[in-house]
Design a protein around this nucleic acid. Sequence first.
DNA 1: CCTTTTTTGTATCGATAACTACAAAATATC
DNA 2: GATATTTTGTAGTTATCGATACAAAAAAGG
Lengths: 203, 203
Amino acid sequence: MAQRGRPRGFDREDALRRAMEVFWVQGYDNASLADLTRAMGINAPSLYATFGSKEALFQEAVALYVRTEGSGIWEQVDTAATARAAIEQVLRTTAEAFTRGATPRGCMIVLAAPQMQGANAQVCDALKAHRQANGCLLERRLTRAVEEGELPASTDCRALASYIVTLQHGMSIQARDGASRETLLAIADCAMAGWEALTTDPN
Amino acid sequence: MAQRGRPRGFDREDALRRAMEVFWVQGYDNASLADLTRAMGINAPSLYATFGSKEALFQEAVALYVRTEGSGIWEQVDTAATARAAIEQVLRTTAEAFTRGATPRGCMIVLAAPQMQGANAQVCDALKAHRQANGCLLERRLTRAVEEGELPASTDCRALASYIVTLQHGMSIQARDGASRETLLAIADCAMAGWEALTTDPN
DNA sequence: CCTTTTTTGTATCGATAACTACAAAATATC
DNA sequence: GATATTTTGTAGTTATCGATACAAAAAAGG
C-alpha cells in the first residue's frame, strides 16, 4: 500500500515525545501551541493534521508518559515478592525517577493540571483517573498480601494505599521545588520505617 | 484628613477575599481578569487602581490565605506540648481544612502554580518559598524536641520534616481529587502510626 | 459655586491564545 | 507526463489575554 501523498517530513513518535516534555514541564494550559510547535520542530498545520487538537496531542502525550516514564515506577507492583517490597520499590523508584537530570522533575500526571479547573475538563478527568488508578493498584496489591498471609486481616488496605499514593504525589511537588534525590529517598525511608507499625495486628 | 475624591464603591477586603477564592480554585494562570472582576464585582480599572496588577493582587491573596486559611494548620506547631502533638495536629487539621464545604479543597499554596513554569516567575517563587517555610517550621520544632529530650539525638529532623510536608502536600492533590475527610484522616493516622519507629534510637 | 482629587464605567489597546484556509510541494498511481 | 493524494509553510481567522486611555461621576476643600 504505502502512503499516497507527500510523505511526512518528521518522525511522529519523536515529535510526540517532545510535546510530552513540554506538557510535563509547563502543564496543559501553560503549554502554548507556539511552545509545542517550536519544540516539535513543526508548524501548527502539521500538528493538527497529525494529532487532531491540542487536547488530543496531550492525551497521546499522557499515554506515552504512562507507557515510558511512569511504567518504571508502577510496573513491579504486582510482580514484587511482597507488598512491602512493592511499596518500597515504588517509593524508591519514584525518588530516582523524579531526580533524573534528563527529564523534568516530578510526575506529569500530578503536575500537568492539578487545579481540576482548567479550560479542558476532559484533560483534568483523564489525569485524575490515572492518579486514582495508582491507588487502586496499590490497594489490590495489599489486599492480595492479606489473602496470601503476608499482612494481617486487620490491615486497612485502602487507607494504606491512599497514604502511599499521597506521599508519592507530594514527592512530585518536592521534586519540582528542587528536592535532591537524597531527600526524596530519605522521605521514602521514613515511610518504610513505619511499615511494621502499619501492618501489625493491634490485638 | 479623610480621602479627597470619590469614595470607593466596594469593600477592599471583601473583594480581595473573593479574588483569593478564584486563585485558590483556578490557580494563577487559569484565573483570568474576567473571572476575577466578575467574582470581585468590580471592573478592571478598579482592580488595577486598587491592587496594581494581577500579580500584585495574587500576592495579596496569598498573604490573606496564609493569614486566614493556612494559619489554622500551622499556628500550633510551636505552642504544642510535644513535637508529636504538633505534627499530629498539623495533619489532622489539614484533613479537616481541606474538606470544608465552604472553601475550595486543598491548599492554595500547593495548587495555585505547581509547575514552577508559569508566565510569572515571581508568583512561582513566592509559593515555593511558602511551601519550604512550612518544612523549616517543622524542622525547627523537631530540633527543639531533640534539645528538650522528647526525641533522641539520632532523630533526622530534616528528613522527618520533609516527610511530613511531603505528605501534607500530597493531601492537597487528594483533596482536590475528591478524597473524603475520613480518607485524609486515615492518611494522617497512617503517618502517626509510624511515629515511634521514626523517633526511636536504633541503638 | 469652582477647583481638586479619586473612582467609576466604557471602550479600547497590542499581544497572544487555539486553530485553519489555501496553495505550493512532494509523493504514488495511472 | 498527467492525475490523485497528502504534507508543507505562509498567512490568516476569531477570541481572549492582561492592562489602559479617557471622560463622566462623586466626593472634599476652598
